[in-house]
């Protein structure tokens, strides 16, 4: 059982982080408000989970201005995508084994 759990990534061990990564896997760039709407979470909650994924270098932040309004967009890094794929595969294997 130990070896099976190896690929389960602790960084994704939370519903919101799982959600953020899922969204970024299928969309190139997503802004903060869209993520918030999709996941149905508060600003602070989302920000802290984004920070955690950013620290792992799984997502990248892109800040720009639309007119005078600042707009922050997020995208998954290659490392993030690979890690997330491994995580999904590990989940699938765990389900098959039991």
């Amino acid at each position: 059982m130990k070896s099976l759990l190896e690929n389960i990534n602790k960084a994704f061990d939370h519903r919101i982080r799982l959600g953020i990564m899922s969204v970024l896997m299928v969309n190139d760039r997503v802004d903060f408000t869209t993520l918030k709407e999709l996941l149905g979470v508060t600003d602070g909650n989302l920000a802290s989970h984004i920070k955690a994924l950013e620290t792992e270098a799984y997502i990248q932040v892109e800040k720009q201005f639309i007119g005078k309004k600042p707009n922050t967009r997020y995208l998954a890094t290659t490392a993030g995508k690979t890690a997330f794929k491994n995580h999904i595969e590990a989940l699938e294997k765990l389900i098959q084994k039991s």
């Binding site: 899922s22 969309n27 389900i95």
Partner: peptide, 18 residues
């Protein structure tokens, strides 16, 4: 196992929803 299944289901749902 149920939690893992739930995780996978949520991933799939979020991907299509987004």
């Amino acid at each position: 196992t149920n939690d893992y299944l739930k995780d996978l289901k949520e991933i799939k749902e979020m991907m299509s929803k987004s």
